[in-house]
Design a protein around this nucleic acid. Sequence first.
DNA 1: CGGAAAGTTCAGTCAATAGTGAAAGTTCAT
DNA 2: ATGAACTTTCACTATTGACTGAACTTTCCG
Lengths: 165, 165
Amino acid sequence: MSSPVGDDGLGAVNPLIDDFGLHIGRAMGWPPMAGRAAGVLMLREAPMTMAELQDALNASKGSVSETTRLLVVSGTVRRFKEPGSRQYVYEWRDDAWSGCLQHQLEQTTELLTLAESARRRAADLPERQGARLREMHEYYTFMVRSLDALLEEYEAARDTRESAT
Amino acid sequence: MSSPVGDDGLGAVNPLIDDFGLHIGRAMGWPPMAGRAAGVLMLREAPMTMAELQDALNASKGSVSETTRLLVVSGTVRRFKEPGSRQYVYEWRDDAWSGCLQHQLEQTTELLTLAESARRRAADLPERQGARLREMHEYYTFMVRSLDALLEEYEAARDTRESAT
DNA sequence: CGGAAAGTTCAGTCAATAGTGAAAGTTCAT
DNA sequence: ATGAACTTTCACTATTGACTGAACTTTCCG
């Protein structure tokens, strides 16, 4: 109920956890808590129960529940029950970073959609403005195409490394 | 002092402006106001004064000042004085999207730095955790390299289009 | 089934962030 | 130099978003 990172020999890593919270959280559009939870889960050997997370993060039950939900839908954490146990455990996924890239791709796709909608809604503007919206549209088209390719490339490279292990 | 988009024949575009505010603002880590300002500036023929922006956005002087500052440092908007005039005008830059991609690259580089620092600070962890930090490090190394390449590719393509005009 | 343990939801509280407006600071034509 | 026009700064207010904790729902062992 006291040490924010539990009794895993990780006591010194704590400020690191907070850095995760701020940075990854911000990058992924998560609240800081989710970033901290991601950090804790990455640095743990074994899968953690909610109670352990709650203790490690020094957070309320409700908050941890919301946080784990978020991490699971983001594709960075999986949850399962160990056979015979009645409680879930949470574990950082080996392919977590694919999930992050996928997330980025989705965000960018949304902006492409916005660009398309903008051109439709503000059609027949003078040359200058039309050109600006065209630039935006071209940019996001380029980005979606490129990120998609990167995702594929990254996963291919990972699979290769994986099978080499 | 009334119509939120001024008297430019853009009256119908207003909900669009707010969409810009939410989406681009969020993507760039800007407050909504900055996104809205970006939208307004994209959709304008001529450069705008602060007074015009203030009117178009229906915002306070202070807020517009902060907002323009932000857009200028982000590289999406430039400001200059028309000769003989004593007030600045603000204009959406033709190469604004390069600035956005650059911004993304910088953000990603920060996370690479975090990954490096994490491996250093949490060295000599058991295999499992070490592998996770290695994955993170590899991911961000890959992303920084790739985004850098994309930026170059995008700018090259733009230059080509440009000179073809 | 009954009920204890685990997990989720949600109204309320607290903290962080955005925006206002007035005062202070700059700039430039005269 | 002076002062009017314009811009920035900053203390305050409003808004938004995160976290808490208690009430509720679900799960599953006996």
